[in-house]
């Protein structure tokens, strides 16, 4: 079982020793012509394929966003004749009285408020649900799963929102995003909370902590890894959401970035350069979030989703 045993299949055997995906397995196992061929041969092939399949579409967005309107309408994958990315950005932002800027603010508010609420409310439910078994536990688990599996009933939701005067308002949409996102959030938190020893709660209670102090001062800080996952997953879901704003927030005043992008597509089909500039602009927040949290995504998922 020592590393002197030559792996018969260097290709797959290499997966074994890695304890976490972000660390490179011990180099001792790589050796011999076959594994070098695998590492560099298959690796280079994968890189070439990934460039064609994944990078070219993004390069296409970037290049088209820098073109003038005439060249962009040719749909060709080419270097911009007049490189005018900055002009396009300014022009897109100014379109229809800065509607994109307003939409950006709307989307950021929507995402911040609903994700914050999801983290706080979802972790509270998950905490009590995991810690205290009562006759309600079964029913609540069932309701959580229902929320995950069942698609929302759309027109009846509009009907409810209208009753409360919340239809076509930002608070209404925020509440809808919270309601639809709760199940997945609770499942992620619950799986993680089950790994935190209950003795910790008891110690805090002995020290005189009430339920609020226990949860917000002792437990919540320990949920950091899974919280990162929840924030990332839900921010992406809410910021990129198209269907819910389309139904529950119609009208220009409260439009989100996804809606403005969709409206741009329906209205000015002639200026594809501006359309792609818009796509580029609304991708940047998610790109930043990703660069920020890249390393923690896998860690969070391993501790949460798969086990749950």
């Amino acid at each position: 079982m020592s590393s002197t045993v030559t792996p018969p299949t260097p290709s797959v055997a290499g997966t074994g020793p890695a304890p976490v995906p972000t660390t490179v397995p011990p180099a001792g196992r790589v050796g011999g012509a076959r594994s070098a061929l695998y590492r560099y041969g298959v690796g280079s092939l994968a890189i070439v394929v990934s460039v064609v399949v994944f990078l070219v579409p993004f390069a296409f967005i970037l290049l088209t966003a820098a073109m003038d309107a005439t060249q962009a309408s040719e749909f060709r994958f080419a270097w911009p004749r007049n490189f005018q990315l900055w002009d396009n950005v300014v022009q897109v932002l100014q379109t229809r009285d800065y509607i994109l800027v307003i939409a950006f603010i709307n989307s950021v508010v929507l995402t911040l408020v609903s994700v914050t609420a999801l983290v706080v409310l979802g972790s509270m439910v998950a905490f009590v649900l995991q810690r205290r078994v009562s006759r309600w536990t079964g029913l609540i688990n069932f309701l959580v799963l229902t929320g995950l599996i069942m698609p929302p009933a759309i027109v009846p939701t509009i009907w409810v929102l209208q009753r409360f005067g919340l239809f076509a308002t930002m608070p209404g949409l925020i509440l809808v995003e919270i309601a639809f996102g709760l199940s997945f959030t609770i499942l992620l938190f619950r799986a993680f909370i089950s790994t935190i020893p209950k003795e910790l709660d008891e110690a805090a209670v002995l020290d005189g902590a009430g339920p609020l102090r226990l949860f917000f001062r002792v437990v919540l800080p320990l949920l950091r890894p899974v919280m990162v996952t929840v924030i990332l997953v839900q921010s992406v879901a809410v910021f990129n959401d198209f269907q819910n704003p389309l139904y529950f927030l119609p009208g220009d005043a409260g439009a989100t970035v996804q809606l403005t992008l969709f409206n741009f597509q329906s209205q000015n089909l002639s200026s594809y350069n501006l359309l792609f500039t818009d796509i580029l602009l609304i991708t940047i927040p998610m790109l930043l979030l990703y660069l920020f949290f890249n390393r923690q995504i896998v860690a969070g998922l391993t501790s949460g989703a798969v086990k749950g």
Binding site: S50, Q258, T283
Partner: peptide, 28 residues
């Protein structure tokens, strides 16, 4: 998860479309 050239790059590039706006991907 195997020892392959450019693993970090490959992971990032395969995962990135998950984060991009669906409408944006659709239009592209």
């Amino acid at each position: 998860t195997s020892q392959i050239l450019g693993r970090g790059y490959l992971r990032a590039v395969v995962f990135f479309p998950v984060l991009v706006s669906t409408v944006g991907v659709g239009i592209t």
